[in-house]
Design a protein around this nucleic acid. Structure first.
Lengths: 202, 202, 202, 202
DNA sequence: AATGAATGAGGGTTCATTCAT
DNA sequence: CATGAATGAACCCTCATTCAT
């Protein structure tokens, strides 16, 4: 099942917004603006004018500015979790599963959902405690997929470091790619995935 | 030359502030508050009351709020660059030099200057273009120390991946430790340094 | 002619709304909400949801929010004026007429139209000048009924104070009952009417 | 002790604001504007321009707009309670005490604090629950002064109606004078007080 | 009539910065 | 140097009203 189909199915289930809907276009704009300028420095007027509506109209779609931030994070985690789950299902060996995880995460960070993923990392403190708790639940599901594979790999004796530490290192290293990796350059995401597998000795 | 002495000498040269001076205490508070709440969500009143003065008095020490942010970043880079330079001088082999770099960076992120380092990473977008350019110059000096060692290591044929990519991965992985590593737990920074050297196959 | 029949006849003449019509139900809701929360703090959405329609649909029944306020006031004065006129016709002596006026006004304030009457008193300043002028005309008719009786009583030498002052005192005292009198308690409106007549020495 | 001296002493005790201070002038303006236009229709910009400052400067003196409303009510009750207490001390017979209460309340409603007293009556619903509770405590003290005198009068057998009902009637009748009584006309407040005593048969 | 998305002016409030004292 | 009242622009959000469907 290709990523596009997964997205369609999540839209049908109303777990994420249709990117062509008013709400969806708003979230796309928000992800970009929050990523470029930061959540606090982005005004609701910036956001409204970016999607071509008046600032008051935002509040027909979201109860508050923070609600928009939460939705950006929520929808990107939901989508990427499902994409990753599908990729894991296609992989056969545990090693392949890890490669899939790395490839998916790199794609999520440097592809279509890159801006939203950066927001997830950099605007974490702008969430209210209540919203943070909700997002953490989704994040736990996502992280569980990683830990399952890393633990299996450790049991096979093929992981040099502690799975927990390894995941932390990978999280940092992969999310940091947003600051320097440029798709379309001499190195493809495929290449990068290989390089990282190499560093892990796999 | 111990770190403490390096600091003394930088203070004497007026390249960084004495932490006991009004300016120094202000920067320490700012680093902590900016790290905890974010730069935008920290008001100058928060800052002033944290050091026990009135908000108007801040502006006798700094021209603007952004000036405080810039100073936090500036001074932490200057200090850590010098500490790293001294550590490199003490190391004999290239491999030892790399270990020193990793150890220093981990220490800078998780030790005394941790809050300021986190600010450097997470509040980057709050800098004006002019300030950003100034900080970038200092950062280039710092990064040059890293690249020199990684290139030497590559020439020795002991580095598996591209030095540039390796540094990027390390930057992400090391800076991310701020979000999960807890000093005083079962793993010392020494242990962590070793684990990372291991991952690099060194 | 009982009050109910007076109401029917005013509805037939289209001087007030049928309480079962959309417009009538809206005015009943409006009176209650304006009284409980105040006119300014009541939104048209509150009002619409209270009658089970969408806010946009309100404007098929009334030109503006203020128009609703005006109608609440207008219809309650018209109704109570006619009820009072009928009561006066039934009373024989001048003293009985005064008792009827007091009883009617107490009933209007603490009975079915109580909410609307409270709105009339407390939301006066929310009317535009134009609306205020219209309501004042109706109020003059209502007040003329009172002054006629009080003047007659003075001519009979049975009123201790000036009719004008007496009416003002009664207006204040009677309208204030809305804040403390509870129907169904130990004192009936009949009792209260008697008590007030007593205070006037009648 | 003249009213002016009572005010001075309350200012010295910081129970009310000096009318010449920034805070005091603000409260005077607020009372007038809230009375003329209503609390909700008065914007903080109206208020600020009325005292000749910028809207943001209001918030150096009061935490919120509602805080201003609360202060208007609070200070006027405190002042009038003390003025009334002093007047009671000067009166000798119970009948004189009641006359003093009526005279004081008429003065409070139609004199210097008239606007604030009107706000107290008409803007009650604009207070938050918390503020309302605070004001109610002060109001209870004020009302206790009334009930004490009315109860004493009843024991002397000189009060025709129930003290509770009498007070309610008087509250309504006296507060309503704000809507029609004009000082400087043919009837003085002294005259009006006499007229009311007469109505009560005293 | 009814809908409900959109409007856009205006609301209360915040906050970095200034400056007379 | 320190104060703290004052500034004024900008912020998020509300809401009566409109209008295409």
């Amino acid at each position: 099942m290709p990523d596009h189909t997964i997205q369609q199915s999540l839209i049908a289930d109303q777990r994420i917004s249709d990117p062509r809907s008013a709400r969806g276009r708003l979230l796309t704009s928000a992800a970009r603006l929050f990523r470029e300028q930061g959540y606090e420095r982005t005004t609701v007027r910036d956001l409204a004018s970016d999607v071509g509506i008046q600032s008051g109209s935002l509040f027909h779609h979201f109860r508050s500015k923070e609600d928009i931030l939460k939705a950006v994070m929520e929808e990107t985690i939901i989508l990427n979790t499902e994409i990753m789950r599908a990729a894991l299902a296609r992989a056969e060996t545990v090693r392949d599963k890890l490669r899939s995880l790395i490839a998916c995460e790199l794609e999520s960070i440097n592809g279509q959902t890159g801006e939203a993923m950066a927001v997830l990392v950099f605007e974490w403190r702008s969430l209210s405690d209540a919203s943070r708790a909700e997002i953490l639940k989704l994040r736990d599901v996502y992280e569980a997929l990683w830990m399952e594979v890393l633990s299996a790999l450790e049991e096979e004796g093929r992981l040099k470091a502690d799975p927990f530490v390894t995941r932390r290192m990978l999280t940092g290293a992969l999310s940091w790619t947003i600051t320097w990796y440029r798709p379309g350059g001499s190195m493809s995401l495929e290449d990068l995935t290989g390089e990282i597998m190499g560093m892990l000795g796999l």
